[in-house]
């Protein structure tokens, strides 16, 4: 075993420490790199921006705490955007491992940030099991599967829901999805009921949603923390008075830059070592 080979087999924990430090430093001392806007995110922003006050969208919280860092920023900025434009938001959740709690936390944040009113500006209808079934039922009558909101207030007594009976009365459905539920919004809700669907997805599943978006099954895709930071940037540009609010995805992209560079370095260095090892072994033979 030569030196290059030994270097390739260094203890994993050394790499762990490098990553840990690389991530920690920009969190403590942010850099503030500029965000580039990409078309799929712009498409979603423009669609919401074109709506009139009083229009309604459905925002489905289909993710749990493990994907909070990626999808929470999207939820925050979409909610702020809608609140600024006077668009009604109907929150639902179809992901069992914590979706409804993510929704509760985001709406509470909205209350603190922009003094939005539960039941008047938005409503959180809570969670239902067996995703495709409630998705289908909402095409007929939302109230039949969501007879009350997450706090138990009956559907008919919630002012923001007046005049909203099914997908037909909504302008757009946005699913913030961690798993296959996002695909169901496309291949079931959009395919069978024709309502426009936009997706906010974890980075891991973003490449797949490009295929759906290019086939016009989704109007746009927000992919991972990058997508979140773009939406934050677009909202901040359009509504300068929101600039003071936290923008965790934009801050996170600083860290992403550093850790990505660390990982890219590891990939390149590993391959150089690999080639050197190969040469050396060949030489030895």
């Amino acid at each position: 075993m030569n030196w290059a080979h030994k270097l390739l087999l260094i203890d994993r924990r050394i790499i762990f420490v490098v990553v840990f430090v690389g991530a920690l430093i920009p969190i403590i001392w942010p850099i503030g790199l500029a965000v580039q806007i990409s078309p799929p995110v712009k498409a979603v922003f423009d669609r919401v921006e074109a709506m009139k006050p009083g229009d309604a969208i459905m925002l489905s919280f289909d993710y749990g705490p493990s994907d909070g860092p990626e999808l929470d920023p999207m939820a925050n900025s979409i909610l702020r955007h809608c609140a600024k434009k006077g668009i009604k938001v109907i929150g639902v959740s179809l992901f069992p491992l914590g979706g409804v709690e993510m929704a509760i936390a985001r709406f509470m944040q909205l209350d603190t940030d922009l003094k939005a009113r539960n039941g008047i500006d938005y409503v959180n209808l809570g969670y239902k099991d067996g995703a495709p079934a409630p998705m289908k039922a909402m095409g007929d009558r939302i109230e039949s599967v969501f007879p009350c909101d997450a706090n138990g207030v009956p559907y008919s007594e919630i002012p923001v829901l007046e005049g909203i009976r099914s997908y037909d009365d909504l302008e757009l459905a946005i699913s913030l999805a961690t798993s296959i539920i996002g695909e169901w919004w496309i291949n079931l809700v959009n395919a069978q009921f024709g309502i426009d669907v936009a997706l906010g997805t974890t980075a891991v599943s973003a490449p797949k949603y490009y295929a759906f978006m290019e086939a016009k099954q989704a109007i746009g895709v927000l992919g991972g923390m990058k997508g979140g930071s773009e939406y934050e940037e677009l909202v901040a540009r359009a509504y300068p008075d929101l600039k003071g609010l936290s923008r965790s995805a934009t801050m996170g992209m600083d860290v992403q830059s550093v850790v990505h560079l660390v990982i890219i370095f590891f990939i390149l260095f590993g391959n150089v070592m690999f080639i050197v090892t190969k040469r050396m072994t060949r030489g030895a033979n």
Binding site: L8, R12, F16, V19, P65, I263, F266, F274
Partner: peptide, 27 residues
């Protein structure tokens, strides 16, 4: 619940880094 679920999955950031170094080869 939330911090535990989130942290267990965040361990993957470290594994991705070490896999990139030790397993990604232009073979």
């Amino acid at each position: 619940y939330a911090p535990m679920q989130a942290t267990m999955f965040s361990l993957l950031a470290f594994y991705v880094a070490s896999a990139s170094y030790r397993a990604f080869r232009v073979k």
